[in-house]
């Protein structure tokens, strides 16, 4: 174990002291989030709660227009719900069947809850009293299905998936470097099982994947208020599954290369189509029908889909089970091939 941890430390230092690697694995995805967010994110609105009031519901009450951070819109319930689906409202307020219902999109559930508190405490109290309605009314926060999302919400988990892919694929170049520079051969003369070199490297890679996850989600939240609304453990499981898949794929691809340069070329061949055809930057519907099958084959499509779903409750395109099975297939496929073609020297 001591050898393993020393190697873990050695890989870690050897990697983080490579400024370029740090840039690609951590700064680059954040930069991506930032640039893309600036273009499509429309960050300003997300600070406010946009409340749609359904005037045709049993309550058409007036609300104080000057409430801080609240922007009110009034319209028919159908119109307001439509606006909510289009991402133009955060919450739609409606009185139905004796209850006050707050419709929200899944990623605005938090805003809905906050609004529910505000309404409960101040706004509605007076209105309800005036109408002689008792406070036994329930306030229900109800997320609506298949909403539309802000581009940045869609984009952020995609960047995470992309970063995990980059890390897995390009990270394997570290090993190619060790092999090309014959470090692995030199260590072959030492009393240790060489597998330790590999396992400690993979462990470090997974560690970096977790750091990436935190950094990317955090920067998305800080800059664009992209809310993390999923559960931590499912997210981590998907991150682990994804990085394991791409790490294996990376080792498999690079086992055919003698030098870092040629390995890099091989990886680009795999990485480029994934970047643009996996629906990372835009919904996959935009990809022309004729090459949709490519999207359907690439593992990144499924990882992105799963991460969007698990981190931001964005409805899954393929279904999580399909995501899981396809990724598992890629994982075992590349693991087997990596095992088969692996070379120490």
């Amino acid at each position: 174990m001591r050898v393993f941890f020393r190697f873990l430390g050695a890989h870690f230092k050897n990697t983080i002291r490579d400024r370029m690697a740090l840039f690609w694995f951590l700064a680059f995805p954040v930069l991506f989030v930032f640039l893309f967010g600036l273009i499509f994110g429309d960050a300003k609105d997300s600070w406010n709660v946009r409340v749609g009031v359904a005037v045709d519901s049993s309550a058409s009450f007036s609300l104080p227009e000057d409430a801080k951070s609240l922007i009110f819109f009034k319209g028919l319930k159908v119109e307001e719900l439509d606006a909510l689906r289009k991402g133009q409202r955060d919450v739609v307020l409606s009185l139905e069947g004796g209850n006050c219902v707050l419709f929200t999109t899944p990623q605005s559930v938090e805003k809905g809850r906050i609004l529910a508190k505000i309404i409960e405490n101040s706004l509605l109290r007076e209105e309800l009293k005036k109408r002689g309605v008792s406070l036994s009314w329930k306030i229900v926060v109800q997320p609506i299905a298949s909403p539309r999302f802000r581009q940045i919400d869609y984009f952020l988990p995609g960047v995470l998936a992309m970063a995990l892919m980059q890390l897995g694929l390009f990270g394997s170049l570290d090993f190619v470097e060790l092999r090309e520079k014959k470090v692995t051969r030199y260590l072959g003369a030492m009393p240790l099982r060489r597998e330790i070199i590999l396992w400690s490297e993979i462990t470090m890679r997974v560690g970096i994947a977790l750091v990436q996850t935190i950094v990317i989600l955090f920067s998305g939240w800080v800059v664009f208020r992209v809310p993390f609304s999923g559960a931590v453990f499912p997210l981590l499981s998907w991150v682990l599954l994804g990085s394991a898949t791409f790490v294996s794929l990376g080792y498999f691809l690079t086992s055919f290369a003698k030098t870092v340069e040629s390995a890099s070329g091989l990886i680009q061949m795999m990485q480029f189509p994934m970047m643009f055809l996996s629906g990372i930057f835009f919904p996959p519907e935009i990809v022309p029908q004729s090459i949709q099958f490519v999207t359907r084959a690439l593992p990144l499509s499924y990882l992105g889909d799963a991460l969007r779903n698990v981190a931001l409750n964005i409805p899954s395109q393929f279904g999580r089970t399909t995501d899981f099975l396809v990724l598992l297939l890629w994982l075992f496929g590349s693991l087997l091939l990596a095992w088969r073609f692996f070379r120490w020297e």
């Binding site: 020393r6 430390g9 050695a10 230092k13 050897n14 002291r17 490579d18 470090v183 051969r185």
Partner: peptide, 15 residues
């Protein structure tokens, strides 16, 4: 001689 390029002399001996 082939060693981890970005480790120091001391760290290499420690490893």
């Amino acid at each position: 001689v082939h060693l981890f390029p970005r480790l120091t002399v001391f760290e290499t001996l420690l490893l």
